[in-house]
Design a protein around this nucleic acid. Structure first.
Lengths: 256, 256
DNA sequence: ATCATTTAGCTAACGCCGTTTACTCTAATG
DNA sequence: CATTAGAGTAAACGGCGTTAGCTAAATGAT
């Protein structure tokens, strides 16, 4: 019914996929030119050469189109950072993580408007409150953009976990993470639950989880601030970022 | 011409100020309810009980109204953090800075939508590029929201400078900031220029500037991430923030 | 007190926007 | 070949920011 006897996509299906791609391409062009709030359904229709109402054959509404665009962008970001990691051998964990950190920032800076859309998506489009998306839910019920965002962080998180495992095995010299302030049981549980399960992917010692979240917050914070133009430097941002990351790595004491 | 012989504000001026306040109050109400992009000029007019066109007697356009609102919000934030600092004696620099850090986050979390507007303002409303606002310009030419943002950061920056001066005088035990990675001359100059002149307010040693910017980036990053719902925790955010700040202060070695 | 001027507000319109409804035509299906 | 599902259109609705031209009231000067 949805495909012919040969099993390949129908002619109609091919046409449809092509149109969808064209719509998304137009949306992205407008995103780059006019920012997240400058994406107009009517303008897309104009560019694609079609009536505004026709777009509703492909997306339920503008929101759905933005969400789909967000997901595509995450896929692109994930592919890019994965490629950067894979430039190093599988056991060069530290190099791979550093490469990821740099590639993340590079993509975000090279695709500012896109990144803005990705991080400002929840409040802009979701009817849920800002804390409405709760990771405790079954993965199917979490909105797709949040899922993609998790996938993105997992790429680095799992590398960290692999690194930990090797230091535990003795394959690598023991690298103690930072000493940790006292943490209440509630926060401990939440860190273990959320981060261990959703980001790192396997149970890690609390000190490692704490280190990972600390690093995550610093890296992500830097990138977001740069995207929003809130950094205290403007000309030497590349070096500033690198310097901050370097200082962080040294503080964690996991690198010579 | 603009005021009567007694020197006080004219009746008309009082009425006008009152109307402006009413408009702003309505704008803020909508901001809180519907977020930054949900502020509608027509809805404000409806609420104030006036025709949409009438609002143009008070603000050039919606943008100008948003900018004015932003400035008011910064004033509120600055007043709040200043009050928190002044809860400690003038020479308790560390306590004052910690109090500032906590009050900043508390205000941002207690006024989420407002904070979103403040940090996402530049891209949304300015015709300039995201890096268009350059601090080298004369202060009058910098857009008012950026000026307020600077004023906000200066509140903490000057405290840091005062702290440094006392350690230099010998009034306080010498507190060395973190060891610093190698920094190119270009970045050094920029840090000294921008941060020293605009944030801290007086020339400080590079190592202190570096420490301040590092701390700034971490604090601001945390707050922005929380505002955007990007933190890796959701239930114990208060403690998470406090823990991160505590770890940071320890790393800087300026506190027992 | 009278007149000129400034000012606040109105009405009406323009051109955008997202979205819905009802209709047409065309291409695939049985 | 008849039927049906899909892609597309035209027209409308209500909302938006903004502008132009008008009215009436408050103000300041004579």
């Amino acid at each position: 019914m949805t495909s012919n006897t040969a099993g390949g996509p129908t002619r109609r299906e091919r046409m449809r996929a092509e149109t969808i791609a064209e719509i998304k391409a137009s949306a992205r062009r407008q995103l780059q030119e006019h920012g997240p709030s400058g994406i107009s359904l009517r303008a897309i229709a104009r560019e694609v050469g079609v009536t505004p109402a026709a777009l509703y054959r492909y997306f339920d509404n503008l929101d759905a189109l933005l969400i789909a665009t967000c997901c595509d962008l995450y896929d692109e970001l994930i592919a890019e950072t994965r490629k950067a990691m894979d430039a190093f051998p599988p056991d060069a964990h530290l190099e791979r993580m550093k490469s990821w950190i740099w590639a993340f920032r590079a993509w975000a800076v090279g695709n500012r408007r896109e990144f803005e859309l990705m991080i400002s998506y929840p409040e802009a489009n979701s009817a849920m409150s800002i804390n409405g998306v709760r990771l405790e839910q079954a993965p199917e019920n979490v909105d797709p953009v949040t899922m993609k965002s998790l996938e993105h962080s997992q790429l680095c998180g799992r590398e960290m976990a692999a690194f930990y495992r090797k230091t535990e095995n003795g394959e690598l010299p023991p690298a103690g993470p930072v000493e940790m302030p006292e943490i209440s049981e509630g926060l401990q549980d939440e860190l273990m639950d959320k981060c261990s399960a959703f980001i790192v992917g396997e149970p890690l010692p609390l000190s490692w989880i704490f280190t990972f979240t600390s690093a995550w917050v610093r890296v992500f914070g830097l990138v977001v601030m740069e995207a929003f133009g809130s950094l205290p430097v403007q000309d030497n941002v590349d070096e500033f970022y690198k310097t901050q990351i370097l200082a962080m790595i040294r503080e964690f004491g996991i690198d010579g």
